[in-house]
């Protein structure tokens, strides 16, 4: 009787062991087999794509002082946000196309201690850049335009804001940018 029970137990154990082995095989086996040739081609392609050298530009975080959001730059100008930089006296933000070409807009703001200081800087820039005052526009603003670039600068309260477009017309809706910056300063 004892022998019979031992035999039955052994058979049961063996059956269980074979079942679990089959299950393990099923789990480790892939759901479908990828042709080896395709895999080889894929790795070749991946290696080749690593070899290709194209400009890769890292995106920098938007500074707190930024005047436009990334989305606004994209929507109004069709340009990607590139970088922003804050110093003790000014804040600069650049939107450009993501190629090596120098196409884009640059927004700069100087926050002065007083309205008089802001006006003084504005007048100095007007003289330095040989700008032309825009008629009947408030706040006071001037424009500089040549074959390549276009600069709009205005003074609003204690702020002086400069918008450089290089080359000119690189932002499709520059007027929207200017009016938004006037509202935000």
């Amino acid at each position: 009787m004892k022998t019979a029970i031992t035999l039955m137990f052994t058979v049961l154990l063996l059956t269980l062991a074979s079942c679990s082995a089959k299950n393990n095989e099923q789990e480790s086996a892939p759901l479908f087999k990828v042709p080896e040739k395709l895999l080889e081609n894929q790795t070749e392609k991946e290696e080749k794509s690593e070899e290709r050298i194209l400009p890769v530009f890292e995106e920098k975080p938007l500074a707190e002082c930024a005047l436009l959001t990334k989305e606004e730059g994209k929507e109004w100008c069709g340009l990607e946000y590139e970088e922003s930089e804050e110093t003790s006296v000014s804040c600069t933000q650049v939107f450009r196309n993501k190629t090596a070409l120098p196409v884009g807009i640059e927004l700069q703001i100087w926050k002065k201690d007083s309205i008089a200081d802001a006006k003084e800087k504005f007048e100095m820039d007007l003289a330095k850049l040989n700008g032309k005052l825009v008629d009947k526009k408030l706040p006071l603003q001037f424009k500089v335009e040549d074959q390549v670039k276009e600069i709009t600068e205005f003074v609003n309260k204690k702020n002086v804001v400069k918008i450089t477009s290089l080359p000119k017309n690189s932002c499709a809706n520059i007027n929207k940018v200017v009016s938004t910056l006037i509202k935000r300063t």
Binding site: I53, L54, P55, F57, E82, E83, E85, T92, V94, R96, A100, L101, P102, V103, G104, I105, E106, L129, K149, T164, L166
Partner: peptide
């Protein structure tokens, strides 16, 4: 006149 756009472009070309 010197702009950030030109500076960035110059850096990118030099990097490439």
């Amino acid at each position: 006149s010197k702009t950030h756009i030109l500076d960035i472009t110059h850096n990118n070309i030099t990097k490439v």
